[in-house]
Design a protein around this nucleic acid. Structure first.
Lengths: 89, 89
DNA sequence: CGCCGACGCTACGAAAAACATAGCAGGAGA
DNA sequence: TCTCCTGCTATGTTTTTCGTAGCGTCGGCG
């Protein structure tokens, strides 16, 4: 899983996740994710170079590869929800 | 995705991944993952508390919840392989 | 008993990553 | 020109991770 080197970095998966349904602007990503601008910019650069997202006129949005990643993450998301509920028990 | 707070930390997913097929000892995990003992111990504590793994007589191994996570990660793994190949093009 | 190795883990200082905050440069509109 | 929004950078501080060394315990084995 070499992809973990990229996606394991802080905010990387989070940014992808934030863009799952719509394009967002730099400052919006900053707010909704909570990352500081320097790191956010760094991650955006890395993810852009990895071909997962692109900066369009509407802001940052996922590429085809990025949307494929979202689908691959979907089971993980479902697991996360179940797991979060189970923590209280 | 609150689970990202836990799994997004460095080595967290990696440790889970290393345990996917068999139990491993502390030092083995250290070697195969590459994490330093202090962080590894920290992550192991967090993951243990999260109920994803346990320290048995055979070493660290995944719990039921941990194995469920592995299954949830599986599509991500497949995506990662395709993506890694596509980077060269 | 004493010695040895493997075990999980901790301590320590150094390096790297992420932090919060302030501010820059460019473009659009009034 | 003035103002606002855009993406982004600069700075100094805090947090995280790193690399290495070493501790305490336990089970064999002589």
């Amino acid at each position: 899983m070499a992809a973990l080197d990229l996606l394991g970095r802080r905010w990387a998966l989070r940014v992808i996740w934030e863009l799952r349904s719509e394009a967002k602007r730099f400052r919006d990503l900053q707010q909704s994710s909570g990352a500081s601008p320097s790191v956010l910019n760094q991650r955006l650069g890395e993810l852009k170079q990895a071909g997962l997202l692109a900066n369009t006129a509407e802001g940052y949005e996922l590429t085809h590869a990025g949307r494929a990643l979202i689908e691959a993450i979907s089971p993980l998301h479902q697991w996360a929800e179940k797991w979060a509920k189970g923590l209280g028990s």
